[in-house]
Amino acid sequence: MLTPELTRLRRILAAAGWSGLGLIAIAVMLADFLARAPLGAAHTGPVLAAPSEAFPFGTDLLGRDMFSETLYGLSTTVAQAGEAAVLALLAGGLLGFVCAHLPRPAGNVLRWAIGAFAAIPALLLALAMVALTARGYAGLAAGLAAAPLAFVRAFDRARAAGRLGHAEYARATGISASALLNRDLAYEFRDTLLPTLARALAAVAIILSTMSFLGFGALPPHRDLGLMIAAARTSYLEAWWTVAFPALALMLLILLARLAAGLDEGERP
């Protein structure tokens, strides 16, 4: 049960999460001003310099300022993950709610078809989709790959709500299926819109960065955090900062998105 203390705690954490995401969004928008070097500028300092006052996040193999590169990487990840999260929300959550209100046989067929995709790890699905199209569509692929699970959850939730007393009584007083869908959209979808979006953001940020890490994501020169970490695989054993700061930035983004979703422990880790 949601006690008032737990509800308050959730609100505080969600507010902290959204505030953090807001700060990240501002940092990303001001990336060109905040960065100390242009995107991809090599030899701005010595090669593999440890973090110092001059280079707070150190430099990488090509002497690029890791602070600036992490900022640019974060902005690429945020931009792609944002698009992908909206896509997952619409193609997953919204579609799930709508399909749950279709006539039962049609809804069941759709649930089965999309449920079959949900049985495949989203990462593998996203890799296959990128390989079928092009690397430029990584965000689209991540969003579509995360959608089946969101669809299944929204569908099952709406169907379970439809079996509850209030839906039965509504039907018994002539409230139509479209009016019941309106209820779901006006209450369930609206109320869960922001947390669902935040949860989707966390999920697609993981998928996108993993795709890039495996070589299926962002295209240079627009390096995202996953690609930066992949590129640093040859140097991180000696120069930890080449991986640590992009990884921390990525974890911060995921953590803030999860906090913004509330203390929901339902999402896949």
Partner: peptide, 22 residues
């Protein structure tokens, strides 16, 4: 029949008859 049922109203001891989200 759904249209006909519009002229029916319910008052029940089942508190779940109302949508708790509304």
């Amino acid at each position: 029949t759904l249209r006909l049922r519009r002229r029916v109203a319910f008052v029940t001891s089942n508190d779940a008859a109302l949508d708790p989200r509304m």
